[in-house]
Design a protein around this nucleic acid. Structure first.
Lengths: 199, 199
DNA sequence: GTCTATAAACCGATAGAC
DNA sequence: GTCTATCGGTTTATAGAC
């Protein structure tokens, strides 16, 4: 088994960034976590910025091949997204902080939005065509709701912390988002949702 | 005219934090912006953390005395909120980052949530009683929608930047939020909204 | 590839003169 | 109140031996 130091560095960095944010982690922290010297670290990544770039490049965006067309499929996508957000919270939790690190990172964030947004939108249209979602009440309603969904996805982690410390109990991402989208569901859609989730 | 150095420091710090975030601004940056020495700065604020605390304490939370009971009143509250987000973007743009600075700040954020949340909730109930909002589709629907509203409020700033750079155009906070709440409106509510805003 | 050593800069915070 | 000077620590990044 070959030790891939570069990979170990990326993994350790991801864990640390998840917890403390980009600015809160030093190169020494990362080197210590991997168990290598600081000099060795900069042999693999000459600049700190390169580490987070490498992290973002290594991460493959896992999107279902086709936009979800049933309630269960969309729900499965929510579950996947929640997992992705948890394991890559460095990216989501410190979204604004990260955007300032470099122009390249800011562009990656925008690109992600550009890719995921239409996927959600197509899913909404598909669910409507399949009779699970009601039509738009006005032109552009789906646009707002997809934005709302994306926003909930990326900021759920810090928000739920706020919620938890204030109200004493946290709300589950999945239940929250289905609750906020419930008005979109037709009778048929509600029946499907009831099979997999009780609000 | 008496120079209030303490006040000048707070203003300069607010401007810098707005732009670069708490971690991205050093005491030297602030001192230079005010035109005083670093030593003088720490005479007024012995720790960096004290500066942001002073900033948060100076800001008075402007809430209407009674929860909005009409569409126009709620809309006015949205406009106020949008202004607050713009002028205190240091707080909103780096909301998640700020929570990690100190326990005291995290508590302030939670307290704000605890105060504003019921205000929104009462407003929703009042608008329902007045015939502008439809009743809940299931118990707890208003809870989710108020959370969605609060989330939009605090994370609108970073999200709209993402949107802007990705889609080339920014969406107005007020139009976004009314679009996402449109399904709540009764016929009467829609007529009221049409008087002040076209979606 | 990995290490030690260190440069060069910056950080927050303090001491003390005026 | 405001300043200069500086401490002690940390940061990113580089140089060079092995």
């Amino acid at each position: 088994m070959k030790k891939d130091t570069r990979q170990e560095i990326l993994e350790a960095a991801r864990t640390l960034f998840n917890q403390y944010g980009y600015n809160g982690v030093s190169l020494r922290d990362i080197a210590d976590a991997v168990g290598i010297s600081k000099g060795n670290l900069t042999y693999h990544f000459s600049k700190k910025e390169d580490i987070i770039e490498g992290l973002l490049n290594a991460e493959k965006m896992t999107l279902p091949p086709a936009a979800p067309g049933t309630i269960a499929e969309l729900d499965a996508m929510f579950i996947d997204m929640q997992k992705a957000v948890e394991s890559h919270s460095y990216f989501f939790l410190h979204h604004a902080q990260l955007a300032q690190v470099s122009e390249s990172i800011r562009q990656k964030q925008s690109r992600r939005y550009k890719i995921i947004w239409p996927h959600f939108y197509k899913s909404f249209a598909s669910l409507r065509d399949n009779g699970f979602f009601r039509p738009e009440l006005f032109p552009g309603e789906y646009d707002r709701l997809v934005d709302m969904l994306y926003m909930t996805m990326i900021y759920w982690a810090p928000f739920s912390r706020l919620q938890q410390s204030a109200a004493g109990r946290g709300m589950d991402f999945r239940r929250h988002i289905w609750g906020a989208l419930y008005h979109l569901l037709t009778e048929q859609g509600r029946a499907e949702l009831a099979k997999i989730l009780t609000l």
